[in-house]
Design a protein around this nucleic acid. Structure first.
Lengths: 111, 111
DNA sequence: AAGAAGTACCTTGACAGGAGAGGTATCTTG
DNA sequence: CAAGATACCTCTCCTGTCAAGGTACTTCTT
């Protein structure tokens, strides 16, 4: 991983929720798809990912259930809830605001 | 303040360095200018600001000196160093990369 | 003259999120 | 059979933010 995680911090939940809007999914797969989408530039640390799931479930943004795999490792699937969708929408709006703000603040005027 | 600080976290140092590229400055002024530039939407908490100064100075990115105010409260001015400038350039590049990445990760494909 | 509000700095302690390091269990492949 | 992939988990530490407190001087208001 090459990009400072502090820049992603604060987007962990949004990234997970976004992924779950595309359908129920489980941790390992979510992480793999992020890795793929970023061309290997980013992926969650497992501890980060699983603590995020706990946090989101406790907040009521997602719910979970065990898959019924007949073979291979068991999978815990996550599904986004209605309030999870609401929260996602807000987070996206926040991101657009923040993005503009940061751009305004970190580029120098005189140089 | 209306925007979640977790979204700004990770940019604190960059914002300060950017400001100092425009010339030496002191904490209170820097914060006021941020407040103004964002139309009141953002400003650092004092504790955050001053710990950031300590951090940046310890890292050698900035240096500080006391102003010679004849009247009013004393001011500690900060100046960006050469390696501070280098670091700033890198941080800006990181931001552009991260911005693209986040955009890619938080927008849903199928909705 | 007293008090509030503004300027300007600082520190301590708590908290939250990220992540290193460790663990479990199953299946596939050489 | 060992190694590696799949898939989950937790404990503990680190770092950055921030609430809450403080100091000291000046200006404005009553």
């Amino acid at each position: 991983m090459s990009i400072a995680s502090d820049l992603i911090r604060g987007h962990t939940d949004t990234i997970i929720l976004a992924k779950l809007i595309g359908g129920d999914n489980y941790g390992y797969e979510i992480n793999k798809s992020i890795q793929q989408k970023t061309g290997g530039k980013y992926e969650f640390k497992e501890a980060t990912l699983y603590t995020a799931f706990r946090r989101l479930e406790q907040a009521g943004y997602i719910s979970s259930y065990w898959g019924d795999e007949q073979t291979g490792a068991r999978r815990r699937y996550y599904r986004i809830t209605d309030i999870g969708r609401d929260s996602y929408g807000e987070l996206i709006r926040d991101w657009h605001t923040a993005k503009e703000m940061i751009d305004k603040l970190i580029e120098t005027e005189d140089m």
